[in-house]
Design a binder for these strands. Structure first.
Length: 219
DNA sequence: AAAACGGGGGC
DNA sequence: GCCCCAGTTTT
C-alpha cells in the first residue's frame, strides 16, 4: 500500500460505507460536547453498549451544567453498562467543571487544551477536533492502528507512532475520513482476530492477502 | 476459561 | 515499556 493506491482505497471504502450501519460516535450530533462525552463512554467498550448508554444519557444531559446536576454516584449508575463506570463518571464530572470554569461552558477547540482534560488522550482529543469542530487532525484508535499496519502503509508499534507517521505520509484530504472509514471497515471486514478477507474489497492493496487463513490456524 | 471491546493514566 | 480498569459479549 502506497500513496498511489491510497486514494483508490479510500474511494472504495467510501462506497462500502453505505452498506454499514453508522458507528455510535459518528451518529451523534456533531456537537463537541456530545462527541467528547460519547468518546469517554466508548473507551474500551463495545460500540453497541456505548450506543445504548449514550442514547439514554443524552435524553437527560445535554450540557455540562445538566451533567453537574447529578452526583458522581448518579452518573456512575447511569453509565454502568459501559464498564470503567466509576472512573468515567469522575472524569465526566471533572471535565464539566473545567469546561464551565475555564471555557465558558464550551469545549475547547485546540489539541493542547483538549489533552489537558482528565481522561482525554490523543484518540479522544483528535475525534473531538475532527468530528466536533471539523478541524484537521488524525484520530487513531485500535482499528486505524491495526489496519494501516496490516496494509503495510506504516510500520509502527503504538497508536501514537501511527498518528505521527500518518501525519507525515497521508495526504491531508484523507485525515478526517480515515477514522470514520476504518472504524467501520474494522468492525465489519478487517476484524482484529479473524479478518473476513473473502469479503474484502481492497485485498489487492493489502500486504497481508489471505491473513484470515493464518490467523484462524494459529489461534 | 479467556480474550476482546473505537484508551488512558499511573508506575 | 508494563499493568490495571469492570462488565458484557465473543471465541
Amino acid at each position: 500500500m502506497n500513496n498511489q493506491n491510497i486514494a483508490q482505497t479510500f474511494a472504495i471504502l467510501q462506497e462500502n460505507k453505505k452498506q454499514w450501519q453508522d458507528s455510535t460516535l459518528e451518529s451523534l450530533e456533531k456537537n463537541p460536547f456530545f462527541i467528547l462525552v460519547g468518546c469517554i463512554l466508548s473507551l474500551r467498550t463495545k460500540d453497541q453498549m456505548t450506543r445504548q448508554v449514550a442514547e439514554r444519557l443524552f435524553k437527560i444531559i445535554r450540557s455540562p451544567q445538566q451533567l453537574l446536576s447529578y452526583s458522581e454516584d448518579d452518573i456512575a449508575q447511569l453509565i454502568y453498562p459501559v464498564g470503567f463506570y466509576r472512573r468515567k463518571a469522575k472524569n465526566l464530572i471533572d471535565i464539566s467543571k473545567i469546561l464551565i470554569i475555564k471555557y465558558q461552558s464550551q469545549v475547547p477547540s485546540t489539541l493542547e487544551e483538549l489533552l489537558e482534560l482528565p481522561g482525554v488522550g490523543r484518540k479522544t482529543a483528535n475525534l473531538v477536533l475532527t468530528v466536533g469542530f471539523g478541524k484537521p487532525g488524525i484520530c487513531v484508535d485500535t482499528h486505524v492502528h491495526r489496519i494501516v499496519n496490516r496494509w503495510g502503509y506504516v510500520k509502527t508499534k503504538t497508536p501514537e507512532q501511527t498518528e505521527m507517521a500518518l501525519r507525515d505520509k497521508l495526504p491531508q484530504e484523507f485525515w478526517i475520513p480515515i477514522n470514520s472509514l476504518l472504524v467501520l471497515f474494522g468492525q465489519n471486514i478487517c476484524l482484529p482476530r479473524r479478518p473476513r478477507c473473502g469479503n474484502c474489497s481492497i485485498e489487492n492493496f493489502c500486504d497481508q492477502v489471505g491473513i484470515e487463513k493464518r490467523e484462524t490456524q494459529t489461534k
